[in-house]
Amino acid sequence: MGTDSLLALFAEALHVPTSELNEETSPKNCNQWDSLAGMTLVTLFEDEFDIEFSTAEMMEMNSVAAVRAILKKKGVADL
């Protein structure tokens, strides 16, 4: 799975084109990343990669880069 595919999942949850997303995208600089989108992101990644986040991990999911790091830590290959 390449970078664009991860961003595509973000685009799906946040309803934002991938072109407007980058590693620094976060709830602070992206209006669409509200708590509903946050919940959607969690479910989307869990379905897509067949994993389960801990509550601590969910709380750390506050930027694209942070999510990528968590997914890597959880052994999601080829990000």
């Binding site: 708590s35 919940m39 969690v42 479910t43 509550t55 709380m59």
Partner: peptide, 13 residues
Amino acid sequence: ARHWYLYRQPWRE
């Protein structure tokens, strides 16, 4: 439980 504690939303999708 995670969605409940973090978002006050109790149910799985």
